[in-house]
Computed example of a mutant assay.
Amino acid sequence: MKLRTLGLTVLGAVGLSALPACKKDEAAPAAAQATAPASIKAAPLPADTPLPKDAEETAEAPTGGGTLHGVVTFKGKPPAPMPIIPGTDPNCDGMELEEQPVRVKDGKLANVLVRVRGEVPGQSTPPPGAMVVVDQNRCQYLPRVQGAVIGQPLVLMNSDQTLHNVRGMAGSKQLFNVTQPPLKTKEAQPPKDSDVVRLKCDIHPWMTAFVVLNPNPYFVTSGEDGAFSLRGVPPGTYTLEAWHETLGTRTAQVTVKEGQDAEVSFEFVAAK
């Protein structure tokens, strides 16, 4: 699988084979269910604000190792969506009008970051030229959830013809605050000691996104169908974690075997 660094998910699929023993580690308050996202076309960047040169490159996903396929499911009744009050900025026209961190379709859960925890010998850096890209489009961050290798550059695109700022938070600690004029691209450097970075816009307070930092490049975000696929993890035994912004985490102990495929699934349950 090729990695396209100008896309909105940055590191490609990588892989394992696993023991499907999942457990509930943490819980967080459930939030709103999602509706189908609006179709949005990004505004083009002007010629005087190109992405960094390396962002135009492509990179191959790791080869060898094992392959893991899985699905993230949601059991129970998803929480009702919560309305967003968009304000009066006409450049926000066309944005989603509901908060939707719990995005469920046919019992499958999207926007779950599945990752191998800890160090992986020989594979601790991102592919050359890979960059984490977050776009601000119709006053929304795209994508909402993605992973990054610790120390990887974070490229912030503003495809809107309005002013934004990107405030990066780790819990209550501010990491950076980048002001973005219309149709401009900037770069922020996430710290090396944070796990989950939350992005917020003070000008448009409903805007939220998450970048989950990892010491290795073995992670992927579940799609609308809840599916994820990881390829190329070196043989060994690891902890595989499924992280969701409001529902907490699930983990499974996984054993990677060279050249073998396996399936591991995670289930999240509605709050009672």
Rank of each mutant, 00 (worst) to 15 (best):
R144G: 00
M169K: 05
G232C: 00
A21H: 05
S194W: 04
L97A: 06
P153N: 09
A47Y: 02
D160S: 10
S159N: 11
F210A: 10
P50A: 10
G147W: 09
I150V: 15
M169L: 14
L19A: 12
L247P: 01
T5E: 03
T208V: 13
G232L: 00
M95L: 13
A110T: 09
I85T: 15
F210M: 08
E119I: 01
L154H: 03
E241D: 05
D193L: 06
R144A: 14
W206N: 09
S229K: 12
D225R: 07
A270D: 13
K257D: 13
K24L: 15
K184V: 11
E258W: 02
E241N: 01
K23A: 12
P191W: 07
P101A: 03
L230E: 09
G107D: 06
A110K: 14
V220P: 00
M1Q: 10
A21K: 00
P182L: 02
L6S: 13
Q174V: 15
L154M: 07
C22E: 12
D225W: 02
Q260R: 10
K184F: 00
G94V: 04
G236C: 09
Q100L: 03
V10Q: 07
N158C: 08
G248C: 01
S194Q: 12
E267A: 14
P86R: 11
P235T: 11
H204W: 06
V197T: 10
E187M: 14
T237Y: 03
S17I: 06
P234F: 00
D195T: 15
D89E: 12
D160P: 04
F268M: 05
H204D: 03
V197N: 03
R138C: 00
F74T: 08
T237R: 13
V254N: 01
E57I: 03
N111L: 08
P217T: 11
T58E: 15
R167I: 04
V120G: 08
R250S: 02
C201Q: 01
T125Y: 04
E187L: 11
K105V: 12
P101E: 02
P143D: 06
P20S: 14
I203H: 05
T63I: 04
E245F: 00
Q260Y: 05
P37W: 11
G87I: 04
I84C: 00
N91G: 10
S39Q: 12
A55G: 12
L156N: 10
Q146K: 09
K23L: 10
K24D: 14
A270G: 10
A262I: 06
N177M: 07
G151M: 06
H164F: 12
L68K: 07
L240R: 07
R250T: 02
E263N: 14
V211M: 03
S265T: 10
H164A: 08
V233L: 13
A36K: 09
K257Y: 07
E224L: 13
L156Q: 02
